[in-house]
Write a protein that binds this DNA or RNA. Structure first.
Lengths: 332, 332
DNA sequence: GAGAGTTACGTCAACGTTGACGCCAACGTT
DNA sequence: AACGTTGGCGTCAACGTTGACGTAACTCTC
């Protein structure tokens, strides 16, 4: 293979020292306009590309960020990942993507690998209860942005949606539209501290003056299949159930399928509310009422937090809590 | 920030030279069992992690691979990306992900960035007509696996689905089930060379003895919205149309929506066949008949090809063509 | 017991880049 | 005229690791 073009190659051709070429390439100043032109021309001509490994070895900045998530099977994540990646690229960084499959051990592997590749920072959708793992990295000097969980450490920022409020809104909407026997299909992958949706659901019920009967909650994998079996269990436990709040839209879609399969009509017999507002939710029949999470906003906040942590370390950051919105469609 | 633990730190603590530690860590041989134990213990104790930048600088292997795709909005891609990433990790490599947004210029940027990060190889879903761009990198020594297109160069492998056969199967299925006025919604992002689906569609029609009327083809963005407007155009051009082959499942779902919106029933009035078999396709109503692309198979072939190119360079590889399968559901 | 091979290390340079520092000429100030 | 300042560059070392090579001790062979 033809060896790479290096600073030295450009330097000898122009007739200056590598250091000067470096200065021009990084626009450090300290060179004349004439040399600048000559260097840039030669860079273009030879197709010089700086070697990020060498640069990173000395500056301790690799120009990369890691995105660590549970998996790409829930459409909410890819749509977000794409936006984050675009923003990272606009800031001149390249993105490592890594899936944890919601497994703390895998998350540990993934972080180890990213760390040894000297990423400048990571954005993490934490697997189960891994806050200690993450704060440990943050303390070792790695900028970490945690989505949908809270922690306090240097080099660490937290961004979440106000899912408790969202869940409460969804619940009140169910009650306001005449449902009174509610159930929730929650996620078996959320540790107690992160069960905001459940807290919001219960709060929404408590706040309501109406005499709704005590709610049923089941916990399932947050997938379509999980939603199907969750709905099955709820119907078994309480055949007269008439309103469901689902952990996310996939679960809600599964719940609607199971309801139909059992001869219940949505929304006539049972109302269903999801969470996330993935693209699919407006395409299914009936179109899903859901708590919309503003992905552009989240990606904006997350990347901004990360870039601030990287470029201005040491400044403590307050946790950010993003508002959510109820989108009423046909399923309620 | 606490400085990193290096080979030297381990070495001084154990009382050997850094080179010996390196030998143990990389299991090169040339050390006694006793030192091995001591080194490994100290590695563990100090939490030593090899610095991949330094290692990559000298070995010219960074332990990373790039995955370059058009975007994550089509669910086909994330599902594949996740499998590929898992296999890469099993092979000890970390994955860069980059989206080109189907724009050749962005693809060029992305490849440049990956190249300067010294990726060991890339898997590319090429944007439009960018074969020359890719072969150029391959010739410069970068292992490249191209999905769904063909090229010939050193360090380059091609893997595709036999979409022409798939499209022909879909078309014959439409004809065999009594449809005779067919239309196709193709993709405006496919350059002529890559219009296998269209070729297969037309071949399927030609091969059939039955006197089907000449087909209509429109080209749209391969999205739900594209499918909607494509269906609109087809119905305008030929109101009696009764069978549609869509570029992919998203387009097919859009087409079904548009058909319903215009009062046509699927499958009674119009049959629709998609392509890809994304998860969503079995969830919509009516469930979509589609040409299934075997994602596990593709990810297997693609990663195997890449790892062979990386680990055994110079061996020419024949293009791989993967079989497809028609899944008949309710939309036909 | 001399030569050859093997084992278990150490030494040194190099990968491509940037930080720290130094040098010289040109310029401005008093 | 002497002095500081600035612009424009070069030199050298260092980042953490591995490739190439050296070497001392030990083992085997006939």
């Amino acid at each position: 293979m033809p060896k790479e073009v290096t600073l030295r190659d450009v330097a000898t051709q122009v007739g200056v020292s590598p250091r000067t070429v470096s200065r021009v390439v990084n626009d450090e100043g300290g060179f004349s306009e004439a040399t600048r032109q000559k260097v840039l021309n030669t860079v273009e001509q030879l197709g010089y590309q700086p070697n990020m490994l060498a640069r990173g070895l000395i500056t301790r900045r690799s120009g990369t960020v890691g995105l660590v998530g549970g998996g790409m099977t829930d459409p909410f994540f890819p749509a977000l990942a794409e936006r984050i990646q675009r923003k990272a690229r606009e800031a001149g960084r390249t993105m490592f993507f890594a899936s944890t499959e919601s497994d703390p051990a895998r998350q540990a592997d993934v972080l180890k690998s990213l760390w040894s590749h000297a990423v400048d920072g990571v954005i993490v959708f934490p697997a189960l209860d891994t806050i200690d793992q993450l704060t440990s990295y943050a303390r070792r000097g790695l900028p970490v942005v945690i989505v949908d969980d809270q922690a306090d450490a240097p080099n660490l920022a937290c961004v979440s949606f106000d899912l408790e409020a969202g869940a409460a809104m969804a619940t009140r909407h169910l009650l306001d539209t005449g449902r009174s026997r509610l159930g929730m299909i929650a996620s078996s992958l959320s540790p107690p501290r992160r069960r905001n949706r459940e807290r919001g659901f219960l709060r929404g019920l408590r706040d309501s003056a109406a005499g709704a009967s005590p709610p049923e909650v089941v916990r399932m994998l947050p997938t379509v299949e999980g939603g199907e079996s969750g709905m099955g269990q709820l119907l078994d436990r309480r055949p007269d159930i008439d309103g469901i709040f689902a952990y996310n839209d996939l679960v809600a879609i599964g719940a609607m399928r199971a309801a139909k399969a059992r001869g219940r009509r949505v929304p006539d017999d049972i109302a269903v509310v999801g969470c996330d507002d993935i693209d699919m939710s407006s395409l299914v029949t009936p179109a899903l009422t859901t708590v919309r999470l503003d992905r552009p906003l989240l990606s904006e906040e997350v990347t901004q937090a990360l870039h601030e942590l990287i470029d201005a370390p040491g400044i403590p950051r307050d946790p950010v809590k993003l508002p959510v919105e109820l989108v009423v469609r046909e399923s309620t």
